[in-house]
Simulated scan of single mutants.
Amino acid sequence: MSIGMYGWTPGEMNNQSGRSFVVTGANSGLGAVTARVLAEAGASVILACRNTDRGEAVADRIRKSQPEAQCEVRSLDLADLSSVYAFTNECPQIDVLINNAGVMAVPKTRTKDGFEMQLGTNHLGHFALTGLLLDRITDRVVTVSSGMHLIGRVDLKDLNWERRKYRRWPAYAQSKLANLLFTYELQRRFDAAGSGMRAVAAHPGYASTGLQSHTGTIQDRLMRVTNKLLAQSAEGGALPSLYAATAPSLPGGSYVGPAGRFEQRGSPVLVRSNKRSRDRTLAKGLWEESEALTGVAYRIPADTGSTQN
């Protein structure tokens, strides 16, 4: 399963000069590391951030360490479809979209469009973003999932927790399972259309990022402690996303995660997702519901002449 990835580091990445990336949620954590490493490798990077002040701080640090880095910050709030439309209206052609942004185990809240916050941000916002950018992506779409997909259940009759009693961790797990269902269905649609584009997924293992500190409960304190004791750095957690976004020969439909025990840390390798994530009937149903909720209907380009590097 490793296809030669054991021990892979960003130093083995091909030069990314001439290639362009959008990284969502690049104002902190895994997204900030991903944007920095890509820029250091010569790529042009758009940091798509809800908090643009923090995004500018990340971009400034990148420019200070790499004066020739090509990076810019643009506003994107995945919890607001009008923001998604505004971003895509101004986005140029890119090679790779990295759907990285996410929220985890937050209290019951809703997006501007009325979606449950975790599903709306982690899945529906990225679903809309990808669909609206599809005619301007030349190579691949990378979507960041989680090992939490293993306990996820997607309820097509109540995706937005309107009838069920809201539970923050099952809601998070549902959104992360949705990320994988989306990735595999998108790849099937690329294949059916004869497109050379690729949809791939990644997960970071257990990485210390700001994602774990917004539950609004005592769990925030507990996770800060476990982060210090058990978690790998954000730099380690970003490795699967970086590999998924840049490896030339990575097949569409791949899922990349850490090589270590329980996939918690380590160099990127191909990993397996659960049977539920590959349920084609469930994926088709989720896709149809996602189109209905977001109003974004996909048009898959037949042959983009996709670039590989």
Rank of each mutant, 00 (worst) to 15 (best):
S83F: 06
T130S: 08
K108I: 00
Y85W: 15
V142T: 06
T88G: 02
A105P: 12
R221Y: 14
R54I: 04
L293C: 01
D113E: 09
D303L: 00
G25C: 05
G295T: 05
R19M: 10
C71D: 14
G295W: 04
M148W: 08
V271K: 12
D279N: 03
K284Q: 11
L180T: 12
G205S: 09
M223S: 12
R136Y: 01
F262P: 03
S44C: 04
G210K: 12
V154T: 02
G285R: 04
D139N: 04
M117N: 11
K112T: 14
R36I: 09
Q93W: 15
R198E: 09
T109I: 07
A302F: 08
D135H: 06
T130V: 01
S28W: 14
G25A: 08
Q93N: 11
A48K: 08
G25F: 10
N100T: 03
V106S: 11
M13I: 09
G120W: 07
L156W: 08
R224M: 13
L239T: 02
A192R: 14
I46L: 10
C49N: 09
P92K: 00
A41N: 10
D113H: 06
P67G: 02
V33S: 05
A192L: 13
F127H: 06
G29H: 03
R221L: 14
V84N: 00
L132S: 03
T34K: 04
G114D: 05
T24F: 05
T143M: 06
V58I: 13
E263F: 13
Q66W: 09
G305C: 07
R280Y: 13
V271P: 02
K108W: 09
G11A: 05
G29E: 10
M148S: 06
R167W: 15
E162T: 13
E162I: 03
A202E: 12
Q232C: 07
F182H: 13
Y298V: 00
T294M: 08
E288H: 11
T215I: 14
A79H: 10
P258V: 11
T226I: 15
A79L: 10
V269C: 01
T130D: 03
I151G: 05
W8D: 02
L180F: 11
N122G: 09
S75G: 14
N14E: 06
Q264K: 12
N14H: 13
S28K: 11
S249I: 09
Y6S: 05
A283S: 04
T109K: 14
G194D: 05
G194I: 02
A292E: 10
H123C: 12
G147P: 08
N227F: 14
R188K: 13
E162W: 04
A39G: 07
A128V: 03
K275S: 14
T307L: 08
A202C: 14
R276N: 09
R61V: 02
L230H: 11
G11N: 08
Q93L: 14
Q187W: 07
A244R: 04
A292G: 07
R198S: 15
G147H: 10
G205P: 13
V103G: 08
P301G: 04
P251W: 05
N122D: 03
T24I: 02
